[in-house]
Write a protein that binds this DNA or RNA. Structure first.
Length: 473
RNA sequence: GGCCCCAUCGUCUAGAGGCCUAGGACACGGCCCUCUCAAGGCUGAAACACGGGUUCGAAUCCCGUUGGGGCCA
């Protein structure tokens, strides 16, 4: 048996969890669960100026909503970079003592000047190695740089991209610790991954370019390399990086939109990963089938239409009671009266689940169940409130008053009999009823609706409609 | 700008040299079903970026071009 799998998701609390981050978290989580390994959550909050507690809470809330629970991480101490400065310092000192790093006194201003000069000559600026062998004393202000071999190359063995070669000539003696004593991002990541014994680094492709620098750092530290897997990025429809201007991109925003966590995981998993022709995956199926070998190399465009379709599949699949429970807050937000109870709402959901792709849509469609129509659609009344309508309403009211059971088959039989009797088509009577009850010409099957609404409410709405037709509206 | 990555229908993808007359899904069109709207079924249109190789044979391998993305500042 090989060593246990340990993966991590290291978000920076500088914003809400967006779909790209969520997918990275998901792939790591799936990989860990598939291999019965450990999934670590680490908060990369070294950028003190932009990191906030609020975003940390938001990140955690989003991950919990998705059900991507971590085996190690907050609130256990030691999983936030700000709590780990001592560890970075110790590693930096060791690198210095072993001659793998050196002190550099070049100021940012000096370097900037050099960079400008190089740019003017249309050359690429690279740290010239000024202090490499200068033995700058600790008493002077200094940054700490990693000593990179001048010759040769570093090969990053990546599971999704194969061997990626970087020439050392392209690499700088990069800064480990800044003059102000703060460790840099790349250094923290390596030290964290090494001390947390991460075996597989699964992250966005935007980190591939940083990888050779990190590999050199692992080697300088004398630690074994993890397996790297750089997964494709998620782009907007215009093939640029997803950002606020492309609309909703944060996980919590999709929750507000009425997306199910099951659908979010399902859709995100299918962005860059596939399992034959299968489109719908439960959490368990994802765990069972997920593997890095089937992760593609090309970036993927986020498509809200398909995402909503996946969500719709889940709305149709999940038990109506569960959907009803999730729908409740959206009803309130739509300004609708509270439903009488959850069982009744589950019946409502049963008639709406084929028609609504999100909870926001479903709440909108559920409106007529919770209150009578405020107005009748003019196009609908123009079409159906013609000659004979008042009489037909009168007959419907009379026959419904005499009807005892409000079951859909019984109602349908009654309507069919009535239509035949009056020499009409079923659709004529059905639409008159639909308009009276919903104010529109489109709704779930009308007999189901009547059955759910009940006799009293149905008759009240029929009478209101009859009055409106009579009033010549 | 330098370096790196990527490239199959509009989009997500299957495809790991002959199984490809390139399959599935979303979206789009048509038909069916039907009390409306949906859902569902059937069906249509829709892609291997381009150019060179390698090979008996290339969407699949190699090189280049173009395009997109990323990292570094």
């Amino acid at each position: 048996m090989s060593e246990p799998v340990r993966v991590r998701f290291p978000p920076s609390p500088t914003g809400h969890l967006h779909v790209g981050g969520a997918r990275t978290a998901l792939f790591n989580w799936l990989f860990a669960r598939h291999h019965r390994g450990v999934y670590v959550l680490r908060i990369e909050d070294t950028d003190g100026s932009r990191s906030t507690e609020e975003y940390t809470r938001s990140l955690i809330e989003a991950l919990r909503w998705l059900g991507l629970e971590w085996d190690e991480g907050p609130p256990t101490p030691g999983y936030r970079q700000t709590e780990r400065f001592e560890i970075y310092r110790a590693h930096a000192e060791r690198l210095l003592a072993e001659g793998r790093a050196f002190r550099c006194r070049c100021t940012p201003e000096t370097l900037e000047g050099l960079r400008k000069t190089a740019e003017a000559r249309k050359e690429t600026f690279r740290y010239p190695g000024t202090c490499r062998d200068a033995h700058v004393p600790a008493s002077e202000p200094h940054a700490l740089r990693l000593k990179i071999p001048r010759e040769g190359e570093t090969v990053v063995a990546d599971v999704v991209r194969g061997r990626v070669v970087f020439s050392h000539a392209e690499l700088d003696d990069w800064i480990l610790v800044r003059t102000d004593g703060t460790p840099t991002y790349n250094f923290c990541v390596v030290v964290d991954d090494v001390t947390m014994k991460i075996t597989h680094v699964i992250r966005g492709n935007d980190h591939l370019s940083n990888t050779p620098k990190q590999v050199l750092c692992y080697q300088a530290l004398g630690y074994p390399l993890p397996v790297f897997a750089h997964i494709p990025m998620i782009l907007a429809a215009d093939k640029t990086r997803l950002s606020k201007r492309h609309g909703a991109t944060s996980v919590l925003a999709f929750r507000e939109m009425g997306i199910l966590p099951e659908a979010m995981l399902n859709y995100l998993a299918r962005l860059g990963w596939s399992h034959g022709d299968q489109e719908i995956f439960s959490r368990e199926e994802l765990i069972r089938h997920f593997d890095l070998e089937h992760v593609g190399a090309a970036d993927a465009v986020f498509d809200l239409e398909k995402f909503k379709w996946v969500n719709h599949q889940w709305i149709k699949t999940l038990p109506a009671a569960r959907v009803a429970a999730d729908l409740v807050p959206f009803l309130a937000r739509a300004g609708l009266p509270a439903p009488r109870d959850l069982d009744w709402l589950a019946c409502v959901v049963e008639t709406l689940k084929e028609r609504a792709r999100t909870f926001v849509e479903m709440a909108e469609q559920a409106a007529f169940y919770l209150r009578p129509p405020a107005a009748y659609d003019p196009a609908a009344t123009a079409k159906f409130w013609k000659e004979g309508a008042p009489e037909r309403y009168a007959i419907l009211i009379k026959r419904l008053e005499a009807q005892e059971a409000m079951d859909p088959p019984g109602l349908e039989a009654l309507y069919r009999f009535l239509a035949a009797d009056l020499g009409l088509k079923l659709v004529d009577l059905a639409q008159l009823t639909r308009i009276a009850i919903t104010g529109k010409t489109a709704s779930p099957p009308i007999f189901d609706v009547v059955s759910i609404l009940g006799k009293a409410e149905t008759l009240a709405r029929l009478k209101a409609a009859a009055a409106a037709v009579g009033a010549g509206r």
